[in-house]
Every structure is written in C-alpha cells, then in structure tokens.
C-alpha cells in the first residue's frame, strides 16, 4: 500500500465513521455535543482562512455568526423567506461587513489588528443590544430573537430530531475543510501565506497583499455567517450577549491556536481536543464555578504555546508519518 492510498483509505474511513455515528449514538444529548463540536470545527476552519493562512489574528468573528443568525431569522420571521435563502443573504452581508472592517484595519499588524477587531465586534454587540427595531425590522435588543416552531420541514430548516442537524453541519464541515485544502494548494494559499509572513517581500514578488487579505476575509466572513444561521435554526433562540459576545470569538481563536493555526487539520483537531472538555467541565463543574472552563482553556493554551508553539497538529502529523512509514514500509515518508 502506498502512502497516498493509506491517506485516502483512512480519510474515507473517518468520514464513513462520522456519517455512521448517529446510528450508534442516539442520545440527543450526545448528538448535541457532537453537533456543537462540528459547529466549532467549522467556525474555526472558516476563521483559519484569514486568521491562519493570511497571518492576522481577528478576534471578533462572533459578529459574523451574529450577522448570519439575525439576517436569516429576521427574513424568515418577518418576511417568510426560507432560512436557506436567508443563510446566503447573511453570508453576503457578512462578507460585505468583513471587507468594510478589513479595509482600514489590515494596515495594522499583530496585536493592534486583533484589538481593532475586538473593538468592532463589541461595538456592534452593544449597538444590537440597544436597538429595538430599525424601521420595520424588529431586532428586539438584548432579549434576542425567537424562531417559532414550524414542525419538521426542510424548507423551514427545522427538524424535530437531532440527526438532520448533525448531517447538515457535518456536510458543511467537510465542504469547508475541502475548500481550505484546495486553497492552501493553490496560488491563493501561497500568496496568503507569503503576504502574512513577509508582506514587503510578497509585494516585491507581484502580490497585492492587501487585496488577497480582503478576499480571504470576505470568504471567511461569508462562511462564518452560514454557521450563524445553522446555530439559530438549531437553538431556535439566540440573544446578543450569547451569540455576539467575545466568548465565542475567543473560543474560536483558542481552538485554532491549540489545534494549529494555518494548518488544515488544526481547527478540527483543536475542536476535538477542547469541545468535549468544555462540555464536561460545564456539566460537572458549571454549577459550582461558572467560567472555570475558560480557566482550563487558558491553562491548556499556555501549556501548548510553551511546548508546541505551532499547536497540536505538527507533533500529531509527525506521529502519523512514523505510523504511515511502518504500515507502508517506506523508509523516508515526507
């Protein structure tokens, strides 16, 4: 068996297991945990397009989740538009807002850019919390929006069981991972990496760094907003503090940093490592010490940054290389 065949076999196997899981795990609680795991893996993969490949650190991506959720919900609650269409509309608006935020802020580097995105995100959250309605559009301020139950209906993006949600988010995750895989191997991926690492050198090689960063920001925001609609339809209720707050933005960044920024598997590995931890600390310790999971996240982040500054993916990749070399009998697999 060659290395390529081994990679493919394992990949197909892993995907097949993911698709088969709901046949074994029927408890809605556990399914919900898995759904949220995929949801975070998806969000982080979308974030990684700009936060990983383009080498900047946006810390306000919850805004785009919010834009997705609010757009599709307002359109379906007040205008009867299917959330599937609202999802695309939310994506387009998020991409537009992302470019609007990115255009002036991409000039800044490092922590300044990160701070600026936090400021934008918090500003938008405070605005939403203080607006009851814009003209005919009901926003409902801090109380958030409720989606009325319409029963099992694909068109209305509502299901009485967890399985459809599971398959939707799994498909979205697979597609977005495939997209990043494709981008990282294309000219765009090379240009983003070059522009993120040495902008001046990249410009001298014919790369309009600012433009490529904006394109990646637009794509990332579009994809992030799609997950916002998913979240709204899964929970059927959301409010600004929970959805637009910094907790969500930071958790996305945590997952990326621990999993491995700028790698394809990183966000998925990060979500696999952190989400169960998050759920269980919340379930077992949440009542005594709320917020403890963030302390644990922080501790893990410090440890990972100290011992594996590039995240968990590179050491795992090396382990896999060794394993693959033994299976295929090839000495120096790369």
């Amino acid at each position: 068996m060659s290395r390529k065949q081994l990679d493919m076999t394992l990949l197909v196997l892993a995907v097949a297991v993911c698709f088969a899981l709901p046949l074994v795990i029927t408890s809605p609680t556990y399914l919900q945990i898995l759904i949220l795991l995929f949801f975070y893996a998806y969000l982080t993969t979308a974030w990684n397009l700009v936060g990983g490949f383009a080498g900047v650190l946006p810390l306000g991506h919850s805004v785009f989740v919010g834009i997705g959720a609010y757009t599709s919900t307002i359109l379906s609650n007040q205008y009867g538009v299917s959330p599937w269409i609202g999802m695309l509309a939310g994506g387009v608006i998020a991409a537009f807002v992302g470019v609007l935020i990115g255009k002036p802020t991409f000039r800044m580097r490092g922590a300044y850019f990160a701070l600026c995105t936090i400021a934008f995100a918090e500003g938008i959250r405070v605005m939403i919390e203080n607006i009851d309605s814009i003209g005919p559009i009901k926003i409902n301020g801090p109380r958030g929006l409720l989606i009325p139950l319409k029963g099992d209906s694909f068109w209305n993006y509502q299901f009485m069981h967890k399985e459809p949600y599971y398959y939707i988010i799994l498909t979205m995750l697979l597609l977005v991972v495939a997209l990043t895989w494709f981008i990282s191997r294309s000219r765009m991926g090379y240009y983003l990496a070059a522009g993120g690492e040495e902008p001046e050198a990249a410009q001298a090689l014919g790369i309009n760094v600012a433009r490529y960063k904006l394109i990646s920001m637009a794509m990332s925001c579009f994809l992030t907003a799609l997950a916002g609609t998913f979240y709204a339809q899964l929970m059927l209720y959301f409010y600004p503090k929970g959805l637009l707050g910094l907790d969500l933005s930071f958790e996305i960044a945590f997952i990326a940093l621990i999993g491995g920024r700028g790698t394809i598997a990183g966000p998925v590995i990060g979500a696999l490592a952190l989400r169960p931890l998050n759920e269980f600390t919340r379930i077992y310790l949440g009542s005594q010490l709320p917020g403890l999971h963030l302390v644990i996240f922080g501790t893990i982040l410090i440890l990972v940054m100290l011992f594996q500054p590039k995240g968990l993916t590179p050491p795992l990749a090396r382990l896999y290389d060794k394993f693959a070399a033994r299976i295929t009998g090839e000495g120096g697999a790369k």
Partner: peptide
C-alpha cells in the same frame, strides 16, 4: 506599486533578506 512593477518585469531582492522562513 511594487506588485504592478513586478508584473511588468521588474524584480528586486532585499538587502536584509526576507525569506518566508516557515
């Protein structure tokens, strides 16, 4: 701009080298 000039056929190196180190 530098990137337009590069497309026209004008390339340069930097005194302090700037490789994409990673």
């Amino acid at each position: 701009k530098p990137w337009d000039l590069c497309s026209l056929g004008l390339a340069r190196t930097f005194q302090i080298v700037k490789p994409f180190g990673s």
